[in-house]
Design a binder for these strands. Structure first.
Lengths: 341, 341
DNA sequence: ACCGCCAATCAAAGCGCTTCGATTATACGC
DNA sequence: GCGTATAATCGAAGCGCTTTGATTGGCGGT
């Protein structure tokens, strides 16, 4: 591989001039000189070595990304992570950044975070860190520019971007309450994720605001998967007074709900309304098609990457919460409750 | 951040000695010396700068990974990518490698592949490259150690690891044929993916071997998603002689099949047997629970990363195909065809 | 008392780039 | 035609590490 030194020798100019041309540097350069240097660059098929550049510049143009989601296939098995990653990659690439990925289940800072430190990532994106682990403190102690996705804004004072879960949960509750439901259950998913917490709070507040006493047996934590949705629904249906509507923490959970209902002979939506979150591709093709909340994950990822890159560039990015609104997709799995229930 | 120079000064030894200790280098070192150096390392909380090291060693301990899957949310929306990635990360981390990720829809070599070249990745993993694009030639021309996942072995002469799709497809056909089906359709997914090709071939060969003439209207390409499965199934069911069994290219497709069948009032498995591929979590919770092929994606990813790392280490890795066998998970969506059909 | 060896350590060059003070060439004003 | 500001280019140091030939000191052998 040719080096900048080869380009200099071949073109007859100095390293400094070549470098200046290559980087559209601050020093003026005669057009003819630029032309000749670029000609050599092309002829030799020269590309700057990013490692050397990183060392010299003390800047790698690398973003680290860490997924806090702790459970097994921690990455990207869900629409959430995949969409976010897609957005991050898009925005990063646009700004000439690349992304390194060190997502393994969290054990300790040294294993999971050291790569970011040692490889001199310019900044870190952290996605959905659990609120009950020491991941965030460890991350902060790296003293690198940090932007979080899905994280309680009051903690740690870092810029955060997220889907507007308050708005989302309100959309769901508007819909269900508006339909006339009063016995509404919530399968919230991982209770240590901020989104889950936020939605639970809205769920409870809206119930109370509607003059409905929240029942603890209607609020079930679990995992964000079909199995959990299935099992929890079985539990709910076995209640002396089962709910007339279930607000599932995501679509995977909702698939499990649908399944359990079918198995128990409970008609959806006639006897049980079901609403999911995410609008995963299969959601449009369940029976009945799933009413759900479409989440702008990709935009969240893009925004997060952009903010981080701004911060790296030195712009002051206030530690505020950037929210993107979800959207209710009404399909066939929700309706007004039976008069009799 | 302290540098190795600080450690040297603080401990009173030379750079060379410190470096030798840090790397368990080839030169002998007095135990007392080692102790004192390490003590300083700890006290200063020194960590080698991987960028500088990369420059000096001409080796970055970085793997690049590129997902060839071209369609929109190209990464990780499916079980395939997610499992592979998980495996890759696990094996890479174990070997002290990190992974950089540049997955955007393929446009041209410069945009997608340049980062690997310029950042001096030690090697590249390519996942499911489309057979009809110029991605692979471009990748090869980088002249970096390369390991492919899901790629026709006869092309390019590179080590490849994959799920044993021949075995898998045979398992499926054994099952369906064994049940007595003769009108078997196949929704193959992206026809430009090698797995899809392989399965189609087995599908056709087994049909012929069983004395069944393959019908072109039973072999439908499409996308690996629910929508595609749904639409293609509608098409199949509208045929004068609809199939009694559908072999779906993956579970997402199979979900669509199930849905279309339900909508058309076709009983599964009584009137239509359905079999998927992947064993996605929701597969166990459909109605009926989906018979499917469980695929060892994670092991594929791990093996690929290990092979690549071996190659980088200089071990000769033959350009052979490493196959991992899938496993048939029999659930309720398949049965013998109606006598009448 | 001397030679040769090996263990232990050091000094310096080099990896490929950026940066910035220094230097030389060019243009302008009067 | 001379001084001076500016354009254009160069030289050299430095980023933080590795590597290797060179150096030193202590030991056994004779």
């Amino acid at each position: 591989m040719p080096t900048i030194y080869d380009v200099a020798k071949e073109s007859g100019f100095s390293l400094a001039t070549v470098s200046n041309v290559l980087n559209d540097g601050p020093r003026p350069v005669r057009p003819e000189t630029r032309r000749r240097i670029l000609e050599v660059v092309n002829r030799l098929n020269y590309h700057p070595n990013a490692v050397a550049r990183g060392l010299a510049r003390q800047r790698t143009n690398m973003l680290g990304i860490y997924y806090g989601v702790v459970d097994s296939p921690s990455i990207a098995i869900n629409a959430y992570s995949a969409g976010v990653l897609q957005g991050v990659l898009t925005a990063a690439t646009e700004a000439m950044y690349n992304v390194t990925h060190v997502t393994l289940p969290w054990r300790d800072a040294e294993e999971s975070l050291a790569p970011f430190r040692d490889r001199r990532s310019d900044g870190i994106l952290v996605v959905a860190p659990p609120t009950d682990s020491d991941l965030m403190p460890a991350l902060c102690s790296l003293r690198l520019p940090l932007v979080a996705i899905s994280w309680p804004p009051e903690q740690g004072n870092i810029p955060t971007v997220d889907v507007d879960d308050v708005a989302g949960a309100n959309l769901v509750m508007d819909h269900l309450l508006g339909l006339g439901h009063r016995r509404i259950a919530h399968l919230m998913g991982h209770s240590n994720l901020i989104s889950a917490e936020v939605r639970r709070n809205v769920y409870q507040e809206r119930l109370i605001a509607a003059g409905i006493e929240p029942r603890p047996e209607y609020l079930l934590p679990g995992l964000y998967d079909t199995k959990s949705g299935y099992e929890n629904t079985l539990r709910l249906l076995a209640l002396p007074e089962p709910p007339t509507a279930i607000f599932a923490g995501n679509d995977e959970i909702a698939f499990g709900v649908l399944e359990a209902a079918r198995e128990r002979g409970v008609a959806v939506p006639e006897q049980l309304s079901v609403i999911g979150v995410d609008d995963r591709p299969p959601a449009a093709f369940t029976t009945p098609p799933l009413t759900t909340l479409r989440q702008p994950f990709q935009r969240v990822g893009e925004e997060a990457a952009r903010l981080l890159i701004q911060r790296i560039a030195g712009d002051a990015v206030p530690a505020v919460l950037h929210l993107f609104p979800p959207e209710l997709v009404e399909r066939g799995s929700t309706t007004a409750p039976f008069a009799g229930s």
